[in-house]
Structure formats: C-alpha cells, structure tokens
C-alpha cells in the first residue's frame, strides 16, 4: 500500500497496465516528455519508451480515430484528451464509431480502448477547461462511462477499464487530482465496473453523486448529521452501464433521495436517476427526488464558486428532503 494522490494513482494504474500488458499504449497531446499537462503520464515515456507512450499531433479526432484502429488490430490504446472540453472534435469517432463498431459488425470488430480525460470545474478554467460533459456520452449506447473519486478507485477502475472488451470513457475529476489522498494497493487489482460504492453509511436520506461532488456531498452529510439528518452517500463510479438495481435498493431503503452533479441540470445524469426511481420505486418514496446541479448556463470563470454545487447547496437539499 502506498499513500497516493488521485493523480499519482492514475499514473500508477497506467504504469501497472503497461508493465503487465505489452499491448497497452498511452498517447495524446503532451503526454510524452512533458508527462501530460497535469502530469498524469509523468515518466511513462522515460520508463517504457516512445513506442509505448508518445505525443500526437493536435487532433482529438485523429487521436480517437487512430485509437479505434489500434484497438481493432490487437492493441489496448489508452488515449488522453487533454481536457474533456476538447473532446468534441472526436465526438464523431466516439459516438458514430467506437460505440457502434461491435453492434454494426455483429461482433466481428470491436474497439477495446480507453479515453482518459480530466473533467469538471474548480481550477478557474472558465468555459472551456471546466465542463462536465458526461450526459452527452451517457446517451451513447455501446460506450461505458466511468468516474472515480478516490485514489483507490481511480487505479482499480482504470485497470478494469483497460481490461474491458468495450470502449470506456474515463472521466477524471481534475479538482481532486491533488486534493485527495488515500491508500492504494500495489500491483494489478480491479474495481469492477458498474458497481456502486457506499462512501458514507446512513439511514434517512440517500445522496447519489460521483467524481468531484463526492467530497462536497460528504462534507454536507457531516453538517447534516449535526442537525440530526443521517445521510447515506453513494458514489456511482460507473454511470454507464449503471447498476440500476443497486440504485433502486438504496432509494427504497431510505425513501428520500438527493442527486448531486456539477454538470447542468437539464437532461443531466440526475434526470436518469430520478426517472428510474419514479418508474420503479415511487411507492417507497417519502419525498420528491431533489437534484443539486450546475446551472443550465455555460461555465463562468470569476464566479465559478457560485456555479459549482457546494456543501451549502447540498445541505439545503438534504434538509428539504429530510423534512418534506
């Protein structure tokens, strides 16, 4: 066990995968010598050589398109998109190609690739270095969407994603890169995709959240405890395919649910959770499902701390739902 930041855990996960499987390649903009703009790929080129870890031209379309071809032909590409905000030139390759290849070829061709990309706010990055675009991708059958929130999960989920036979979008909460630390086992271990994690036990209200919103929610849950609200916090970890049964079990057991994400509300992931509960657990619910989300506006810069859901907003929702 080592005590690592989330960023170091990702580096460790990449390193472990590259060591164990010579078909794993890591590439993207500035990932080689520089080690990535956040240093997630630091020293991978030095340690594994430029055939295993390398820079590409500045084209996300090229990065993902080439990753698909590599994956079709026996490699395990782990492509980095420098910021999730810059993934859109590759949207066509992800949505039209990677996600549909297995289906359209009747399983003859597949694209087992991982696209890692930092997402979310909190670094004063304004409109284009802060977005949470998971909803676009969760609307894409054939793709898997994973979001870790702890160093342990970051490494274990990444290793599971790399081993997975299908394309995985691995969204890294950049706000947590250096702000969370935790015990990370050595060697190759996998956290199975499509499983939930109970980040905090509680009996009265369940909060579903993921990524950078997990610590925010935990803080709100602590404050709520002081006023007698016992909150369970569930880290979704994999958004697609979602562990729907697990979500419903938690929802039924507390009968009160809050969903937290920093992406805009309209057609956001919270809508899916809310609809799932409305369809399958309405008779257990003692209060409406409440969403705490980013606003339906682009991401501002100077006022980003008002845009991002904070523990006050989560606490407010907890109180509303608990006392409904």
């Amino acid at each position: 066990m080592a005590n690592l930041t989330l960023l170091q855990a990702i580096n460790d996960g990449l390193r472990t995968a590259m060591k164990d499987d010579p078909s794993v390649l890591v590439f993207g903009e500035d990932v080689g010598k520089k080690g990535g703009v956040f240093l997630a790929t630091e020293n991978l080129q030095r340690d594994f050589g430029a055939n295993r870890c390398f820079d590409t031209p500045l084209s996300e379309d090229g990065i993902v398109g080439c990753a698909i071809g590599m994956a079709m032909n026996g490699l395990r590409p782990v492509a980095e998109i420098q910021f999730q905000d810059f993934i859109f030139p590759a949207f066509d390759q992800i949505v039209s190609e990677a996600a549909k290849l297995r289906y359209r070829s009747g399983g003859q061709y597949t694209a087992p690739l991982v696209i890692r990309t930092p997402y979310g706010g909190g670094i004063r990055g304004g409109l284009y270095h802060s977005q949470s675009g998971e909803a676009y991708f969760c609307h894409t059958p054939g793709l898997k969407v994973v979001v870790p929130s702890t160093p342990h999960d970051a490494k274990g989920l990444l290793l599971a994603a790399i081993a997975d036979p299908d394309p995985v979008l691995f969204l890294e909460p950049k706000a947590l890169y250096r702000s969370v630390k935790g015990e990370v086992p050595e060697g190759n271990y996998k956290v199975p995709l499509s499983t939930l994690r109970e980040a905090r036990a509680g009996t009265q209200v369940t909060v579903f959240c993921y990524g950078a919103m997990v610590p925010v929610t935990l803080k709100a849950a602590e404050e709520a405890a002081a006023s007698g609200i016992d909150t369970r916090v569930i880290d979704l970890r994999t958004l697609l395919p979602l562990d729907e049964e697990g979500v419903l079990e938690h929802a039924k057991s507390t009968g009160r649910v809050v969903v937290v994400h920093e992406a805009p509300r309209f057609c956001g992931f919270g809508a899916e959770i809310s609809a799932l509960i409305a369809e399958h657990a309405i008779e257990y619910m003692e209060a409406p499902v409440v969403r705490v989300t980013g606003f339906d506006t682009p991401f501002p810069n100077t006022l980003e701390h008002h845009y991002l859901p904070d523990h006050r907003r989560v606490l407010d929702a907890l109180e509303r739902v608990a006392h409904f």
């Binding site: 903009e29 500035d30 080689g32 010598k33 520089k34 703009v37 820079d55 590409t56 031209p57 500045l58």
Partner: peptide
Amino acid sequence: AISCPVEEQT
C-alpha cells in the same frame, strides 16, 4: 504546441 515540437505536428 505546448511541449510538442513541429516535427511531431507535421
């Protein structure tokens, strides 16, 4: 282009 020299670009 940040750390990528032109030889890596074209």
